[in-house]
């Protein structure tokens, strides 16, 4: 097989692109699709009372969640087991992805449950003032932390 030298000639197009015009992905206005009643996948979405909370689109995989202290036990006991489970897990900070993995429930379902529990005052969702993506100091801390791994 003869390979042309690197960097020469016109930019090439990956096969997968050749028919499809390159377009940037749409911004995430999206909420996970909700199955229609009667479909086999319905069960997880029943937990959310059939509602799709728009705020759940703002929750990221790595969003940190903690239970707000002092929830009245009789109110917690009346919740769906999944919600109780989330409150229990979030006694210490936990990411949305970890909640999904520990409960074996789809991410979309967890996001909705977490958003609902947040709106009802049971969960805190933590946001941070500086966006780490554009914060050199935070990135340097990650670099130094990884360098210490052997």
């Amino acid at each position: 097989m003869s390979i042309p030298p690197e960097g020469g000639g016109a930019p090439r197009i990956r096969p997968f692109l050749s028919g499809a015009p390159a377009r940037p992905p749409a911004p995430s206005q999206h909420v996970e699709p909700v199955p229609q009643a009667g479909q086999a996948a319905l069960r997880p979405f029943i937990l959310t009372g059939g509602r799709v909370n728009a705020d759940s689109a703002d929750i990221k995989l790595e969003t940190q969640v903690t239970a707000r202290p002092g929830a009245p036990p009789h109110l917690v006991a009346a919740m769906a087991p999944e919600s109780q489970h989330i409150l229990h897990l979030c006694q210490s900070p936990l990411s949305v992805a970890e909640i999904s993995a520990r409960l074996h429930l789809h991410l979309g379902v967890i996001k909705i449950l977490v958003a609902d529990l947040h709106h009802a005052g049971y969960l805190d969702l933590h946001a941070f003032e500086t966006d780490p993506v554009f914060d050199p100091d935070t990135i340097l801390r990650v670099i130094n932390g990884l360098r210490a791994i052997h």
Binding site: G19, A20, L61, S100
Partner: peptide
């Protein structure tokens, strides 16, 4: 750990 998500996949056939 593993988490699952429902999503819309968009695929373009490489043969076509």
């Amino acid at each position: 750990l593993t988490t699952e998500a429902e999503m819309t996949a968009e695929s373009v056939g490489i043969d076509n």
